[in-house]
Simulated scan of single mutants.
Amino acid sequence: MKGRVALVTGGTRGIGAGIARALVEAGAEVVVCARRPPEVPLPGVEFTAVDLRDRTAVHDFVGGLPRLDVLVNNVGGSPYRPLGGGESGGGGGDVERHARVIELNLITPLTVSLAAYEHLKRARGSVVMIGSVSGSRPSPGTAAYGAAKAGLEHLARSMAVEWAPEVRVNTLVVGMVRTELSHLHYGGADGLDAVARTVPAGRLADPSDIGGAVVFLASDAAGYISGASLLMHGGGERPAFLDAATANKGGC
């Protein structure tokens, strides 16, 4: 990746920081953008404060970059928010909150990608979308997030066809990752260990795992890969019916 410039959106912590570190280690010049700077310094990474939901700010920032070879659309996420529930009782306010989740996880990557297109076309560059297994399975409590990630994967496939052959576009479909905020989703150490046991690989992914896969997809080693979705989920999740069947058999 030496001599290449990479932009990672939301790259100040967690998965994004792991991606930024991996790109730096591979020799790229890395820029990250988010609303707030990283709490832990990222050596070799340049930070710019940008509200990625402000489309004018995004176009001004990306358009002002002197060069761009790799775009990693990492920004995203969602609070736990059941459909039809919450403080608003499922009214208009609740709809607006779900809409904001879709905007962050789908519209924002589209906005950044469009702003980066001319740079990437000149560089014959690459886009990596950070997707989620939530886009291909039911996501109770984060349905809007799952729907947005499903849309993001479809967007990447269409973009790969429209922008070929100058720009490659792929999706990294990520499973459960152990970050500094994992305890908010899975509980403390015991909860994390219990969740890890449901993964065939026996552990949650580390941000460095995701970073390594991004480097691969952005590199010449993946020069013939475009419009693809690479699963990074440690083998998936053990089907619940197997545990139920095993428990029932044991009781006979």
Rank of each mutant, 00 (worst) to 15 (best):
M1R: 04
K2Q: 13
K2W: 04
K2A: 14
G3E: 02
A6S: 13
A6R: 00
G11D: 06
R13Q: 15
A17Y: 09
A22G: 05
V24D: 03
V24M: 04
A28N: 01
A28M: 07
E29H: 11
V30N: 02
P37S: 04
P38T: 08
V45D: 01
V50S: 05
L52V: 06
F61N: 02
G64L: 06
D69E: 05
V70N: 04
N74R: 08
V75C: 02
P79R: 08
R81Q: 14
P82Q: 07
L83Y: 10
G84K: 09
G85C: 05
G89I: 07
G92D: 14
G93V: 11
R97W: 03
A99Q: 12
R100C: 03
I102H: 01
N105P: 05
N105Q: 05
I107T: 15
T108G: 00
L110Q: 11
L114Y: 11
G131P: 00
S136G: 13
P138S: 09
P140W: 11
G151F: 03
H154T: 15
H154D: 11
A156R: 01
W163A: 12
R168A: 07
N170M: 03
N170W: 02
T171Q: 05
V173I: 13
V173L: 12
V173C: 12
G175A: 06
S182M: 03
Y186H: 13
G188C: 03
G188K: 04
A194E: 13
R197Y: 05
T198M: 12
V199A: 06
V199P: 06
P200K: 10
G202M: 05
P207K: 10
D209F: 02
A213K: 01
F216N: 03
L217S: 08
S226N: 07
G227L: 09
G227N: 09
L230V: 15
H233E: 15
G234W: 00
A240H: 10
F241N: 08
T246Y: 08
A247I: 12
G251K: 12
